[in-house]
């Protein structure tokens, strides 16, 4: 038996701590607990208001469930073949006229369609413009192909776009341009730059150097080099990121209306103010469905191009 072993036998074993300095470790643990307690204790809770609000909560959940069922019935009534093909899932048709559905009623009367339409329009336009601006900025922000002054400028644009919250940009733009979708459109285009140009620039920086150099060595011009050496390498990712951003822009467009920058958010805000939970539920359900469709589509397209 070796001496080292003899020294260890009978000794308790403890896992060596993640942070080796004991003072620092205990200050960190103690500080975290203290902050947690103080921060949590500092939150004011008005139980009277919550008890009252529970009623609203119940109404919202009932409304959400109700509108979900109404949508389900509507789909079954519009597409009778679903009941025939999947009888266990859809059950027998109700036999009602689909145009009398409660879902349709809520959906059409409260300007939901107009708001949604505006949201979609803002999403499409801002995504296209955002991509168009992001590409040159991404090229400029890629350290391996851009000269220093351009690099710094493009990186600054990206940093600014990322640091400013969409809602805050929208507030400023509404103050300048007035209410309406133009403010929302510019906000989303600007936000797209920070996202797309940053990730695309990183992708360009990580591309295969040999491929790009091979094209350069043929004596091509700068434009040809980008077109043949760089573009094919980053194209799949550009398409994937653009689809992802389309999805994000739609979600964001749903809240810009809260500050007057167009889209479904204004309708939603009004509905909340008036405690019209049927309308709220219909809007939220619609948003969730559209987001799910977009997510599915972007998954399919990303799968195709990669």
């Amino acid at each position: 038996m070796s001496a080292a072993l003899e020294a260890k036998l009978g000794q308790a074993w403890k896992k060596p701590p993640f942070i080796t300095n004991p003072v620092f470790r205990w200050v960190l643990i103690g500080g975290s607990i203290l902050y947690f307690v103080v921060a949590l204790g500092g939150i004011e809770v008005s139980w009277d208001r919550i008890v009252k609000g529970m009623d609203y909560g119940k109404r919202f959940i009932t409304a959400f469930g109700g509108i979900f069922v109404a949508l389900f019935d509507y789909i079954r009534d519009v597409f009778p073949w679903l009941s025939e093909t999947f009888p266990r899932f859809f059950g027998p048709p109700t036999g009602n006229d689909p145009s009398d559905s409660r879902w349709i009623e809520i959906w059409t009367e409260k300007e939901i369609i107009k708001g949604l339409y505006e949201s979609i329009v803002m999403t499409v336009a801002s995504t296209v413009v955002g991509i168009a601006i992001s590409i040159p900025i991404a090229l400029g922000a890629a350290g391996n192909i851009a000269p220093m002054p351009i690099y710094l400028f493009c990186r600054a644009v990206i940093a600014l776009s990322r640091a400013l919250n969409e809602i805050i940009v929208a507030i400023i733009l509404v103050a300048i341009l007035g209410f309406g979708p133009l403010a929302g459109f510019i906000t989303l285009s600007f936000a797209t730059i920070g996202f797309l140009a940053k990730l695309l620039a990183e992708d360009i920086e990580n591309m295969n150097k040999q491929q790009a150099e091979a094209v350069k060595s043929t004596g091509s011009s700068w434009g040809q080099w980008i077109n043949f050496g760089v573009q094919p390498q980053v194209m799949p990712r550009l398409i994937g990121l653009s689809m992802y951003r389309l999805d994000i822009n739609f979600r964001e467009s749903a809240v810009l209306g809260l500050v007057g920058a167009g889209g479904i958010g204004a309708t939603l805000n009004t509905a909340f103010d008036r405690y019209e939970f049927d309308t709220v539920a219909a809007i939220l359900l619609t948003i969730i469905i559209i987001v799910m469709i977009l997510e599915y589509l972007s998954g399919v397209i990303r799968g195709r191009v990669q």
């Binding site: 038996m1 080292a4 072993l5 260890k8 036998l9 009978g10 000794q11 308790a12 074993w13 060596p16």
Partner: peptide, 19 residues
């Protein structure tokens, strides 16, 4: 168990690597 672990590590020559 801890003692047995130390013995085995010693047997395979890795006692000083325990932590």
């Amino acid at each position: 168990d801890v003692d047995e672990a130390y013995r085995l590590l010693d047997r395979v020559g890795l006692l000083e690597m325990a932590d």
